[in-house]
Amino acid sequence: MDTSSPSVFVNAELLRMHVGKKVRAVVHVIQSDGEITTGKSTDEHQLIVKGLPHVSLMSYVEVIGIAESDQSIRAETWTNFGNTFDTQSYNQVCQLANGEFKGLFL
């Protein structure tokens, strides 16, 4: 497992800028069938996460992995953030980390 490279905070909109690179995103799990997990990103778009174990529906999961396309991530590690999560703040951090304050993150 390679975690040496930085993993960028992304939402669905920012994901397309990082295809092929390491990213981190929080998804609200809608569907999970073992291989493919579908969830809602912090900016309310649908994301597909591959390689997650079965996770409970409606939980928030942070996924760190490689951005395979503009709407899918291959997970390397994941953390269950529980059932309540402030997606708005996280989404703001994604935007700041890719925008004005990129220098602190990338």
Binding site: F9, T79, G82, F85, Y90, V93, L96, F101, F105
Partner: peptide, 17 residues
């Protein structure tokens, strides 16, 4: 509370600014 992650980075940005 995993909101602490986002809030930490907001802190970092704030202090930097």
């Amino acid at each position: 509370d995993f909101n602490e992650i986002a809030s930490h980075f907001i802190d970092c940005i704030y202090v930097h600014l």
